[in-house]
Nucleic acid binder design. Structure first.
Lengths: 127, 127
DNA sequence: TTTGCAACGGCCAATAATTGCAATAACGTA
DNA sequence: TACGTTATTGCAATTATTGGCCGTTGCAAA
């Protein structure tokens, strides 16, 4: 564990919700002026791989948040207004189990971002 | 429908499976030397929006294939070896309906790419 | 026929994310 | 503490995708 990694981890941990990679970078540079953006990205991918943080795809940017062991959830992201809703994992446990049994495919439910249109944007279906 | 758009459509349609945006571009330039990459991307997004093509996220590249009305399916993509498996939509119809009823959220199941580890890569779980 | 308007494509710049590589820092071991 | 191995960093370049600007085109209204 290097100072850079600790810094990135602290920033994501200190965030109430999800935070963009670029925001992590600018916050990291406050204490640590020479952290490189590449390091931030690599660290975030590393933390994701070990399960500490969760990735959420919002628009065409990656966001991250702490993996909450006590309150796990999926993310519903509106492709129109980019609003993010959380969803109980109950909705997909069975799905994950079926895929594991039938295909041996272990879905990464943890980092699954589900795209679509939220109730508001679906009604005013412009595009 | 412009020649450029027809060209992009033809290329995707002439493909047995999915094809990367960059490949579409290089093939498009064979007949049409001055198509711009941005045009290819815009056209692909347009074709996706009208439901003609389906987007598949493979690694960190976008791939596209014709939307098959007679044999719709989701995509399972291994995050390790990037193998792509198809999955019957039956697995997720109920899920989509629940989200619509309970939250008014209309999932874009059409373009949903599900990430995870395939049977082979899950066993040799290196990273 | 002319005018006005919206759609589209080409060009280029911006943004987002990743990678290769050389220099460096961390860590275990003696 | 000194040393060697390995992982990590910074930097620069590269890839992937998107957006802005502007000229052109087709089509409809005047």
């Amino acid at each position: 564990m290097t100072p850079q990694r600790l810094s990135v981890l602290d920033i994501v941990a200190g965030q109430p919700g999800h935070i963009g990679a670029d925001e992590v970078w600018s916050l990291a540079r406050v204490q640590h002026p020479y952290v490189d953006l590449a390091t931030v990205y690599r660290t975030l991918q590393f933390l994701k791989r070990v399960g500490v943080v969760t990735e959420v795809v919002i628009g065409n940017k990656l966001h991250f948040e702490m993996t909450d062991q006590h309150n796990p959830h999926h993310h519903l992201v509106c492709s129109n207004c980019e609003a993010v809703y959380t969803l109980s994992p109950d909705y997909l446990v069975e799905f994950g189990q079926r895929l594991a049994q039938e295909f041996g495919f272990s879905v990464d439910l943890e980092n699954l971002t589900i795209g679509g249109k939220c109730s508001h944007c679906a009604v005013s279906a412009s595009e």
